[in-house]
Design a protein around this nucleic acid. Structure first.
Lengths: 206, 206
DNA sequence: GTCTATAAAGTGATAGAC
DNA sequence: GTCTATCACTTTATAGAC
């Protein structure tokens, strides 16, 4: 491991740790397992991290960032201009679900890291803050979707956003537990319709 | 610890372990910590459990049973006969939320145990089965609520039940992360209205 | 700078005294 | 039956050789 810059070592160890967390869980991400995964000697660990806790804090940060990335698809707009508001919400949920299904182990690891964060006083505020950012992101998507379909929200859009985040969370857990694609899609459909029910009609009854 | 029946020892250790899981997390529930919490010598542990894994499997079973108990309030019927379907769903969600708020640490521990179960091939099927039982329980409550208010579900009630379970899960995580009672109640309200949107009106427009 | 070797503490499990 | 004492192993972290 000759002369690898400390910055790169750090990144390599974080990447290795995230792989282990996804594959075997948070508990399995010991310093030894991490350096072995990265192909480094044990001493390299404390050369770039003061402690295992420091690594864990970094992992939590990456996890929330990754989740942020995963929820971003909700923003992506369908091109078809004749889509209803419910269609747009459904498409967003399906896209999010696809990102979960694309790498279930990673998603399960992310959930574990979120729970770990809630136990650690140091990183708990970070988790709370990030949860707010998710909601704000979803809120923007909902506002855009309503604007594009010329409809308006009957309740504060922030509350609708919270419900969508809760639904996405619940949908994720449901799929991770059951692994039933059809059920998950039906759930997304029901959820989309339920969300749409919070929007007012523009002209005639739908 | 003279002559305490093995059955009672077992129960005492399980109770002690659940307290530790709630207070400090799954990782902290070591054999030593558990027997210390129960005020027993270390050897008592392997006197009633073949291994730590056996204890963990037992904890997972208790956890899912406990969650079942927590979701049961959704069944409880309000006495007032003039409540709308949305009111009944809202009341159920609030009652569930109250049970979470009554002991947040316990709830967080239950979530951890559920995640632990998903990693353990031995207990994973149990978690999946129990998830089905939750949904069935909620479905019964939804059918009863619809019957009492003389309304009917526009989509298969099983799908509505899945959505309610997802919402309850998401609501739980949201409150555990944010600890904002007002937000949680608003979320419950939005969720109740969204659920009601899946029911058809009996006669006139509401 | 890099890494082997080891320290110090904690873990699940068990043998064997009473 | 009950529990002290201990084994064999793993963990985080560090000292010190090269």
């Amino acid at each position: 491991m000759a002369h690898l810059p400390a910055r790169e070592r750090r990144e390599a160890l974080i990447a290795a740790a995230l792989r282990i967390v996804a594959r075997e869980g948070v508990a399995a991400a010991t310093t030894r397992a991490v350096v072995a995964e990265a192909g480094m000697p044990l001493a390299s660990f404390h050369y770039v991290f003061a402690s295992r806790d420091e690594l864990m804090a970094e992992l939590v940060q990456r996890a929330v960032s990754e989740e942020y990335r995963a929820i971003a698809p909700l923003l992506a707009s369908g091109e078809s201009t004749d889509a209803s508001l419910g269609d747009l919400v459904y498409a967003g949920l399906v896209r999010y679900l696809d990102s979960v299904k694309a790498d279930p182990e990673r998603e399960r690891g992310m959930l574990e890291l979120t729970q770990y964060a809630l136990r650690d006083p140091e990183t708990a505020p970070l988790a709370r803050l990030q949860y707010e950012r998710y909601t704000a992101l979803v809120q923007m998507a909902l506002e855009a979707a309503a604007g594009r379909t010329e409809r308006s929200w009957l309740v504060p859009v922030g509350e609708v956003a919270r419900m969508v985040v809760a639904l996405a969370d619940g949908m994720t857990v449901s799929w991770l537990v059951r692994r039933e694609d059809r059920e998950a899609l039906a759930l997304a459909r029901s959820a989309a319709r339920a969300v749409e029910a919070h929007a007012g009609v523009p002209a005639g009854v739908r």
